[in-house]
Amino acid sequence: MVEIGTILMMGVFAALAIHSKVLRLSIVYLAVFSLLGAFLYLLYAAPELAIAEAVIGSGLVTLLYLAALKRSRVYTVAVVGTGDRDRLADAYISHVERAKALREIRDFFVLREFELQVVFVPVSLDQAVLDPAYDLVVVEDDEGFSAYTEDESYVMLELEMMLRMRGEASMLRFGRYVAEGSE
């Protein structure tokens, strides 16, 4: 009974690792898969293999995958708030995460197999755009979401083009930020 449960769980985690859109989550699922495999070895009375699988499968290999993923480009989207709402509250974060605008950005990056992370920062728009740690800054005001970037790479140009072509349907306006004093 425990055996069958473990094997089914391994299957579930293997499928999750393949189908997860976020690569970092795939690595975590693979680590859990390895840990369940180690437990299965223990059930089949092979404790030596269980030790090796637990250490190598979910320790060393997970770290290697994470280090390799770190080498790929990670785009950081910063969400800054304007107005008087508490911009770091859980309710606001889940509201933004479920918004159509952010899903559009997420789908755009998933389609190109770039890693995307969304952070919520308590700074003003100017500071966020000028901070080199953030590639794209999303602001919600009364009229909806707007995205700003200073980045001129082809990915951002492509994103801008897509959003301009979608127009109103994308629920997201795109603005190119011009630093003060450069005009």
């Binding site: 404790p47 090796a52 250490v55 060393l60």
Partner: peptide
């Protein structure tokens, strides 16, 4: 695990992997 390899489950390879995970933890 290394020193009791001939007496309990484990041995050189398993204990060596645990020692290698020390490098990982430090990293």
């Amino acid at each position: 695990v290394i020193l009791n390899g001939h007496y309990t489950p484990g041995g050189g390879f398993q204990g060596g992997s645990v020692l290698a995970s020390l490098f990982v933890a430090r990293y």
